[in-house]
Amino acid sequence: MNIITIKNIFSRLFATHILISLCMLLMLGLANAELVTKEQIKGLDEQVQDIKKDVLGISTELNLLEEKLLFPSSTQISIFFSLEGNTSFQPDAIKVDLDSKNVAHHIYTFKEVSALQKHGVQHIYTGNIRTGEHSLQVSVIGKDGGSKKTDIASHSITKGVGPQFVEIRLTGAGVKFRNW
């Protein structure tokens, strides 16, 4: 929509001879200004998109390499943390012990809790263990209906030949585990 500007009104009200000198000034100014065209912006944006694609490709390759090199499937254990839908237990912090050794601890930001509530799953730990029996102990500190709550739970894992995935799920009834 064309909106009249004050400049237009002002110009009408002021003497016309001023405009001539203004135009000259304006032209002088324009001669010095470096122009930024839409094409320039678009062209650069496309190049940025291309480099993003390249870097994402590198990231994918690195993820695969890292998994193969650092966490081969025969020894890999990955631990995830999630919230049960509609649970009133909101985590503030979590501590994960594997075979009585602390392997992960995390303090949650508001954004992270919100992401967990939207069905996001946090990948909290990846490591290597031998095949056989292992113990997992998890302690979660948080709030439930405004009051502080701490829940500690243990779980045993039998590591087989393939990669082992364990989901720690925070529910209204406390911490639950699921082997994947």
């Binding site: 990955s78 995830f80 999630s82 954004k111 992270e112 919100s114 992401a115 967990l116 939207k118 069905h119 996001g120 799953v121 946090q122 990948h123 995935f165 989901e167 994947w180």
Partner: peptide, 16 residues
């Protein structure tokens, strides 16, 4: 129901 933990992880990042 969520059937793939890594898909859940992607959602976790995207939500933030």
């Amino acid at each position: 129901e969520l059937k793939d933990l890594y898909f859940g992880e992607a959602l976790f990042h995207a939500s933030q």
